[in-house]
Design a protein around this nucleic acid. Structure first.
Lengths: 210, 210
DNA sequence: GTCTATAAGGTGATAGAC
DNA sequence: GTCTATCACCTTATAGAC
């Protein structure tokens, strides 16, 4: 009768498991991204999910397991924009498009962005193996691609790795520091996303123009 | 014999109070910036400070009071680089100097940077009044200054508020996401700070050149 | 000012009925 | 699969001796 990973039941039960697992993870994302791991209680997750605390612990064996599942499930999605960086297209268009994709992802998934940010901020203890392998490898590949564009004279000479850092920093800032931005900007400003998009396009276009 | 704010004792006692208060706040900064508010226990602060838990609570009436004291003490220092932005000097030099000051501050006080970041990330609940007054006012003043530089044709036309956002984002990134950066860069890279400094100077110089 | 002891309440996780 | 009840532990904060 087992835990999640042991599938001994039929189609219908599996579907219920999947559905409830999704509900719990969404509720947990909501609370973890707002209060951090330590500031989150299973009770809060349970209330958010509309389930009882023991029921949460029927699907996940511990609070930490929920947290880990969330982080690991996030990684593939989070790297997708960078993976799409295309060697054959126009370099500046490619990079500014990447900036746009990253910005849109932060705006569309602010909870995920914050969860990720909190985790890195606190030392990346649960992601370090992944960062040292998958992310490091991907950065290396894409930095090499950018370096080849520089060597071909297609874009200006810049440090390709720090270029990536600054793209991450500027795009994620709008999701992660949203509270600060909202408090500073006038409430009437409903076009923050558009302005941010245009500003960042200009920032990186000017940097990279040969 | 009263709490911190009531000064009924002589010079010597006051000096001890001040010394222990500083020790506690430094220990608390260490732990809060690493584990967040919820992930921190008074026991951890006590151990870090080399004091007993009740002794901590002799100087501060609660865990939250320590946290608040830290955040509020941080604000003046954190805004100083922007305050120094000088209306009379050369605009591009002024802005790139500001970038350097902000970068140095993040590198020199990474714990403060992370504490601040975690607070904003989680909704800025304890700083919202300050952000809406002091910071908003300062940003308005300095954005107006930058706008006047644009009007005078001294720098390129950009959105001045988003310029400030991108400066904060890029400079704080090196402190806040240090764990990720260290894992991605080769261990041999000891000159990250220098490269970051040069890269950011180029990024903003190109953006702002008329 | 600093300590030991402890109250008071919250939290993660489990047992067992349904 | 889901619930109520509960255990065992941890944590904040206080009381009171020194």
């Amino acid at each position: 009768m087992g835990r999640l990973k042991i599938k001994t039941v039929g189609e219908k039960a599996t579907r219920i498991q999947r559905k409830n697992t999704d509900i719990i993870m969404d509720a947990a994302l909501e609370v973890f991204s707002k209060n951090g791991f330590g500031g989150t209680t299973i009770d809060q997750i349970a209330e958010n999910a509309g389930l009882s605390k023991p029921n949460i612990l029927y699907y996940f064996s511990s609070k930490e397991e929920i947290h880990l599942s969330l982080l690991q499930g996030l990684l593939v999605k989070w790297l997708e924009p960078l993976r799409q960086l295309n060697p054959t297209a126009d370099p500046i268009t490619e990079i500014t498009s990447y900036v746009q994709r990253k910005l849109e992802m932060s705006q569309e998934f602010p909870r995920e962005s914050r969860l990720f940010a909190i985790e890195i901020l606190q030392g990346a203890k649960h992601l370090d193996k992944y960062i040292q392998t998958d992310l490091k490898e991907l950065v290396k590949t894409k930095a090499t691609l950018i370096d080849s564009w520089i060597a071909d004279g297609k874009i200006a000479k810049v440090n390709s790795t720090h270029l990536l850092f600054s793209i991450w920093a500027t795009t994620q800032h709008y999701a992660d520091f949203d509270a600060q931005i909202k408090l500073i900007l006038e409430p009437k400003n409903n076009d923050t996303n558009l302005i941010a998009s245009q500003y960042l396009k200009e920032l990186f276009t000017k940097l990279l123009s040969p």
